[in-house]
Amino acid sequence: MEFESIEDVMKRLEKAGYIASREIATVVFLAAAGNKPILVEGPAGSGKTELARALSTCMNRHKIRLQCYEGLDEAKALYEWEYAKQLLYTQMIKEKINDLISGADTIADAVERIADQEDAFFSERFLLARPLLQAISADDPTVLLIDEIDKADPEFEAFLLELLSEFQVSIPELGIRKAKHIPMVVLTSNNYRDMSDALKRRCLHLYIDYPEPALEAKIIRLKLPGIEKRLADKMIAVINRIRELDLKKRPCISETIDWAQALAVLRIDEITREAMSDTINVICKYRSDADMVKASMDRILN
């Protein structure tokens, strides 16, 4: 088994720079043990993508990433024939082709002879492997991150399904490619739309929320080892109160980290009203959000 225990998952993820809750570690452990993809949901910036990165680091595997978007198709996700290269080659070996068909009596015969050589043109050499094929044909096990699957079209989701259950693809000209190793698959979703039941059935589900205060403090101390515990705790209390506001974009972990860095640079070690208004732009990306925070400053600071 890849991991020895749930504790082992937590320890190794932490070494890779990721602080996992027990629930996250449990699901990762089960997914790794059972070769199941994980479907991760959660608010923006709660560490979905980061989990995949940390997994690849701690499992010592290559990370292959497929970013989904509307209109993404097999040619961009799986493979494509390099037509331009094929054309170029036909031109370069034109003479050879002439030789080949020189003795042919009829056109049908000539076509037949060329067709015999077709394999040469539909071979690895002209195949452009995209992330999914890369993950399947890799010599070593990989971590395959399929990011923001909710942005892809339903047709693509259906196609992905097949891949996730069989871990093989059929390339008409080359035959069936079966995965040498089943990759560790992480799919992320921001819930732009709902995933199909069929896809969900193939995955283990994991919801990553904003971390508990204790965990977030741990993350901060991991990224900024020098930070005073008292300050970190206070920061996180404040951030969590800001998250309760009805903001356009709620501050996520990276904002907490940025804020801690900003405070360090400005040598601020006490969170006062003044300190808040000096650094508010690090926490809130929108003017209207910053204004809302300023308006509720009293409640946030106490």
């Binding site: 749930i6 027990r22 629930e23 449990t26 699901v27 089960l30 479907l39 949901e41 959660g42 819930n191 709902d194 995933m195 039941d197 969900k200 059935r201 995955c203 283990l204 589900h205 994991l206 919801y207």
Partner: peptide, 16 residues
């Protein structure tokens, strides 16, 4: 917690 997490990951497949 682990027991519940395992069941949850299998039986509740969306945040909803």
């Amino acid at each position: 917690a682990g027991f519940k997490a395992a069941l949850k990951a299998n039986f509740a497949k969306s945040r909803r």
